[in-house]
Nucleic acid binder design. Structure first.
Length: 466
RNA sequence: GGAACCAUCGCCAAGUUGGUAAGGCCGCAGCCUGCAAAGCUGCUAUUCGCCGGUUCGAGUCCGGCUGGUUCCUCCA
C-alpha cells in the first residue's frame, strides 16, 4: 500500500506503527446541520481507505468523531430553543443514516466531544503545566504557537506573517497572532459551559481531536496513530493545531501519515451556503439511489476536486448498470472463488493511493470479458460462478454491486406499477407470438412512455426502470 | 497581498521512478434481433493549456506565461 502523505507531498509506502494493524482517525462533522455532498465525499474516501486496508489484511481501527459542542451548534440552540443534545443527536442520527445509504461502513469508534471532556481537560492541563498554553484574564486558554518550534510543518504555512493576519480580529491578550483557543471560558448565564480547573467553559475545536486520539489510541511511542484524515480545508489551521497540541502534550508526533480529500463543486462552483448552492445529501438521496451516488462520488480520485453534475452522474449510473446487467445473466447461481488475476489487479490499483480510476477500468474489462464469454457459451457454469465471486469481491472492496439485480433496476417501482408492467409485457409476448408486431411495438412504446425499458433475452423479456 | 494544487479525446478520467497516451459516457459501422433494447466486435487524441530548456527520447523533469481551483477566517 502506498499513500500520498499531504505533509511530505509524496506517495509513501504504508508501514504501520504496529505490525499488521492500521489506526485511522478522520475528522467527522460538526453536527449543527444536515450533511452535504462534501461530507459524503470525505466519508466515502476514507471508507474506501478502510476497506482497502482490510482487504490487504490489516486489522483496521477507524475513528470518526462528532463535534457536538461548538459555536454554530450553540447558535442553533438559541435559534430553535431546543437543547443542544436534541440538536446534536438529531443530526448525528441523520448523518449515520445517510452515510449508511451510501454504503459507508460505521467507524469502530465514534467519539463525541461532550463525552471526552475528561481527556480534553487533561490535555489542556498538561499543556498549561508544560508552559505551552496560557490562561488569559477572562479564563480563555490559548496555545502558544511560538513555543512549538515545529509549528507550521504540517501545512507548511510560514511563521509570523502577522502583517496579513491583521484583518482577523483577535483577542488582544493573545501572545501571537496564530495562537488559538484550547478552552473558551463561559460568556454568561445562558452559555453552555462545562466545569474545568482553569475556568468554566467549553473546549475549542482543535483540542477535541487531539484529546480523543490520545484517549482511544495507544500509539507506538513515536506516533499516536497511523493515518489522520479529513477534508483539504482542514489542513490549516485545524490539523496544524492538532499536531502542535499533541506534539507538545505527548512529546511525540500525532500521525505518521496525513491524508486530505478534495472538494465537491456544483457545476463548477464552490459549494457554499453563501452562494446558495449547498447540496444536501438528503436532497440528492431523494432523487438518486445511495449506491449510484456512492459509485459516482467515488469515481474520481479522492484528492481531486469533484465537480458534481447530473450528466456525469448519469454516465456513472450507466457504468454501474452494466455491472448489474452482467449479474442478471449470472443468477441464479453460487459464487466460487475470485479470479486471482482480477483480484490482484483490483487490489494493486487500490493499493496505489486508492487509484479508483484504474480499479473501475479493471472492473469494466472484467464485465466485458465475462459478457463476451457468456455470449459464446451461455451455459458456462464455471465462468458464471467465478464472475459472481468477482462481483462479491467488488462489493466487499468498493461497496457496490451487492444488490439483487432486479431490485437494483426496479428501484422506485411500486407493486401496482409492477403488476401493470408485467401485464403489458405478457400482452406483448402474446402479440409477438402471433406475429402481430404492430401491437407489440405499441406496447413497447407505452412502456417507454412510463419510463420502462425492456429487453428480449433467450430467457424471456426483462424490464428496467430507464 | 502571501502560499499551494491543477490544466490529457466532445464530456468524465488514468497515466510511481522520463521511453513513445488506460477505462467509461457520447458518436459511427458491423454481429445479434421481426424491429428494437441489452450484449459483443471494430473505429474515434501522432497528441497531452501555451512558450522555451534539459535529454538519444518528456504528458511525465526545469523555467516562464495563460487559465482554473483552494488555503491563509468557521468549513469535508
Amino acid at each position: 500500500m502506498v499513500i500520498f502523505d499531504s505533509v511530505t507531498k509524496t506517495k509513501r509506502p504504508f508501514e504501520p506503527i504496529k505490525e499488521g494493524e492500521a489506526s485511522i482517525y478522520v475528522c467527522g462533522p460538526t453536527v449543527y446541520d444536515d450533511a452535504h455532498l462534501g461530507h459524503a465525499r470525505s466519508s466515502l474516501a476514507f471508507d474506501l481507505l478502510a476497506r482497502t486496508l482490510r482487504a490487504l489484511g490489516y486489522k483496521v481501527t477507524m475513528a470518526k468523531n462528532f463535534t457536538d459542542v461548538d459555536d454554530k451548534i450553540i447558535k442553533k440552540v438559541e435559534a430553535t430553543g431546543k437543547s443542544m443534545q436534541e440538536i446534536t443527536t438529531y443530526y448525528i442520527d441523520r448523518y449515520l443514516d445517510e452515510m449508511a445509504q451510501l454504503g459507508v461502513q460505521r467507524a469502530d469508534i465514534e467519539p463525541k466531544a461532550t463525552e471526552s471532556l475528561d481527556a480534553i481537560e487533561q490535555m489542556i492541563q498538561t499543556l498549561i503545566d508544560k508552559d505551552f498554553a496560557y490562561v488569559v484574564s477572562n479564563g480563555d486558554v490559548y496555545f502558544d504557537t511560538s513555543k512549538d518550534p515545529h509549528y507550521g510543518e504540517i501545512s507548511h504555512k510560514v511563521h509570523d506573517d502577522d502583517e496579513n493576519q491583521s484583518r482577523v480580529a483577535h483577542n488582544s491578550e493573545k501572545r501571537n497572532p496564530k495562537d488559538f483557543a484550547l478552552w473558551k471560558a463561559c460568556k454568561g448565564e445562558d452559555d453552555i459551559c462545562f466545569d474545568a480547573p482553569f475556568a468554566s467553559g467549553r473546549p475549542g475545536w482543535h483540542i477535541e481531536c487531539s484529546a480523543m486520539i490520545e484517549k482511544y489510541f495507544d500509539g507506538n511511542g513515536a506516533y499516536s496513530i497511523d493515518i489522520h484524515g479529513g477534508g483539504a480545508d482542514l489542513l490549516f489551521p485545524h490539523h496544524e493545531n492538532e499536531a502542535a497540541q499533541s506534539r507538545c502534550a505527548t512529546g511525540h508526533e500525532l500521525a505518521k501519515y496525513w491524508m486530505h480529500n478534495g472538494f465537491v463543486q456544483i457545476d463548477g462552483e464552490k459549494m457554499s451556503k453563501s452562494l446558495g448552492n449547498s447540496f444536501f445529501l438528503k436532497d440528492a438521496l431523494k432523487v438518486y439511489d445511495g449506491e449510484i451516488l456512492r459509485y459516482y462520488l467515488n469515481s474520481v480520485h479522492y484528492r481531486n476536486d469533484f465537480n458534481f453534475n447530473e450528466e456525469d452522474l448519469l454516465a456513472a449510473k450507466k457504468r454501474l448498470d452494466k455491472l448489474y446487467r452482467l449479474k442478471k445473466r449470472l443468477l441464479p447461481g453460487k459464487a466460487s472463488a475470485v479470479n486471482p488475476a482480477f483480484k490482484k489487479a483490483l487490489l494493486d490499483a487500490m493499493s496505489d493511493d486508492l487509484n479508483i480510476s484504474v480499479a473501475l477500468s479493471v472492473i469494466d474489462e472484467m464485465v466485458a470479458a465475462s459478457n463476451e464469454k457468456l455470449d459464446e457459451n451461455p451455459k458456462d457454469k464455471a465462468l458464471k460462478k467465478e464472475s459472481l465471486a468477482n462481483l462479491a469481491f467488488i462489493d466487499t472492496l468498493l461497496g457496490f454491486g451487492g444488490k439483487e439485480p432486479y431490485s437494483y433496476f426496479q428501484i422506485g417501482v411500486d407493486e401496482t406499477l409492477k403488476e401493470k408492467i408485467e401485464a403489458l409485457i405478457a400482452k406483448r409476448t402474446e402479440a409477438k407470438k402471433a406475429k402481430d408486431f404492430a401491437t407489440a411495438d405499441a406496447i413497447r412504446d407505452e412502456l417507454t412512455q412510463i419510463g420502462i425499458a425492456i429487453m428480449d433475452t433467450p430467457e424471456g423479456t426483462v424490464w428496467e426502470r430507464a
